[in-house]
Design a binder for these strands. Structure first.
Length: 498
RNA sequence: GGCGACGUCGCCAAGUGGCAAGGCAGAGGCCUGCAAAGCCUCCAUCCCCGGUUCGAAUCCGGGCGUCGCCUCCA
């Protein structure tokens, strides 16, 4: 199959063909660390984690680079507000960012360079741009001359003249053109600064991505990613700088993730309508948030709400319950007569279909929503098979449901959606021993034996239609965090995670 | 004002020329002593108007609406 992806530069889907056979080089713009990231930021990082994971699943050796912007106007402002050094703000929120990514289950980048560790290289690129006539220095600042680069506007589909007539560009008499942007900024008192040929100063924002991506990946590299709000001016400027400096194409495929909205409006720190990722993760497991995000295509806008988190939780339970049920059956002897041959064959086909559809959807610009749809269909097929045959399973049947389990776990894993660990043999809480003594007269200390005695006692009560006693036993277990479910093949015990 | 995207069931959302996936919610039924989990059935002709085509949610034109970018922003 051919992987097709939407390239902003081409404004269409294209077949993917990496620079080096079997290898993919990708760069994704990271955060500016002046605050905790919000879930809009998280969505973009999750989208590119999905892309990275799928490329790896597909067999590519992926080199994934993401920067951390640790010197910037916003950091300086946050530092001034808090009365602490800018470096302290950057250090605090860099650490918070790394933890948030880890909590989200995002795979760590192959390299994660920081702006403050790349100053000499950035100065080098500015010098090259001046030498080549694409940039000019004025009073300790250095600007990139957009008119000097013929391709300016090709990524965002803009025309320099149209942009200027838009008239929202700040006027600065020292610039040759209002759209010229800073490569190097002279330092004001109290700001972080580094020595340079133009005096003490700091790099402009766009510069670091150009320098780091080339350092880590070489040019042209394969995939450049970021949120769609970065297309202009950030990525347009990056592209212009890099191609002007190297004389070569910069990146082959530009991928942009859709915005996360709240009440149909973009979530952003400036609008103040943001929810921090860390706060969401305190209330909901990471896989639930990820499932919510992946049910929408990565390029589409996504409306976020607590209600949707609740819905995603329910949907997630479908998968969790399925693998729990399968594991429970697999942990028991399969001495039944077996499911009808036709049903077994149908389930086998459902597994194949789910795998085929997963690949086909993901090959088409990473359509995770479609891919998930296929997995839900497989879940229904498997549940149907089990509910029809759960008391009659034979070894052949176990083999097929095991296949369902690995398919679901593996493919959700490609999407980064993890399922609860195998608890087919749950670790029971200590309280079962004393409960067992109370309700079943158990006198030992083994938890599993105690639980068996409890279940036997409840089974007897149920056989005698002593519902009050049976329910009392169940309530006793519930109080210990042990859930009991009656199935045709016997009572099933699960232990809640918390 | 310029550039761009989108408008599919109550909500969310796939599908980009051949009789409209999936999730959540809802109705009815099955299983169960009850419960939990689950299964079955039901629930849309795709914003509006034209056009192209044997055939369009899918292509073209127009309209209406929403959103994004044009300034820092994932």
């Amino acid at each position: 199959m051919t992987l097709r992806l939407y390239n902003t530069l081409a404004r269409s889907k294209q077949d993917f063909s990496p620079r080096d056979e079997g290898k993919v080089s990708m760069y994704v713009c990271g955060p500016t660390v002046y605050n905790h990231i919000h879930i809009g930021n998280a969505r973009t990082f999750l989208s590119f984690d999905l892309i990275r994971r799928y490329l790896e699943h597909r067999g590519y050796d992926v080199r994934f680079v993401q920067n951390i912007t640790d010197v910037d106007d916003k950091i300086i402002r946050a530092a001034n507000d808090a009365g602490v050094p800018a470096a302290e703000i950057a250090a605090t929120y860099s650490a918070a960012f790394l933890k948030a990514m880890s909590d989200l289950g995002v795979e760590p980048p192959s390299a994660q360079p920081r702006a403050t560790e790349t100053i000499p290289e950035m100065i080098g690129m500015v010098e090259t741009l001046i030498e080549r006539g694409f940039a000019y220095a004025v009073d300790g600042d250095v600007y990139f001359s957009v008119r000097s680069f013929p391709g300016y506007g090709k990524l965002s589909g803009r025309d320099i003249d149209d942009l200027e007539s838009g008239a929202r560009v700040e006027v600065d008499e020292r610039k040759h053109d209002p759209l010229d942007f800073a490569l190097w900024k002279s330092a004001k008192p109290g700001e972080p600064h580094w020595p340079s040929p133009w005096g003490e100063g700091r790099p402009g924002w766009h510069l670091e991505c150009s320098v780091m991506s080339e350092m880590e990946l070489g040019v042209p590299f394969d995939i450049h990613g970021g949120g769609s709000d970065l297309v202009f001016p950030h990525h347009e400027n990056e592209l212009a700088q890099s191609e002007a400096a190297t004389g070569r194409p910069f990146a082959s495929y530009w991928l942009h993730g859709g915005m996360l909205n709240i009440n149909a409006e973009k979530m952003s720190k400036s609008l103040g309508n943001f929810t921090l990722l860390k706060d969401v993760l305190e209330a909901y497991p990471a896989p639930v948030l990820r499932l919510l995000m992946l049910q929408t295509h990565y390029r589409s806008p996504l409306d976020f709400s607590t209600e949707r988190l609740e819905e995603a939780s329910t949907a997630y339970e479908r998968f969790a319950n399925l693998v729990r049920t399968i594991r429970w059956h697999r942990a028991r002897p399969a001495a039944g007569a077996g499911a009808p041959e036709g049903e077994r064959a149908a389930l086998e086909l459902a597994v194949t279909d789910a795998r085929t559809r997963f690949e086909a959807d993901m090959e088409d610009d990473f359509n995770s929503a479609g891919a998930l749809g296929g997995l839900f269909e497989l879940a229904r097929s498997a549940n149907g098979f089990l509910s029809a045959n759960d008391a009659a399973l034979a070894p052949d049947d176990l083999a097929i449901i095991a296949d369902v389990e690995t398919t679901v776990v593996d493919l959700l894993g490609v999407l980064g959606v993890t399922l609860p660990a195998d608890e087919s043999v749950p670790e029971l809480p200590e309280g079962v021993v004393s409960l067992s003594r109370d309700v079943a007269g158990y006198e030992g200390t083994d938890r599993d034996e105690a639980a068996d005695a409890i279940l036997a006692a409840r089974a007897t009560a149920r056989a005698e239609k002593d519902w009050a006693r049976a329910d009392a036993i169940r309530d006793g277990l519930t109080a210990l965090g042990v859930r009991i479910e009656d199935t045709a093949a016997g009572a099933r015990v699960t232990v809640s995670e918390s």
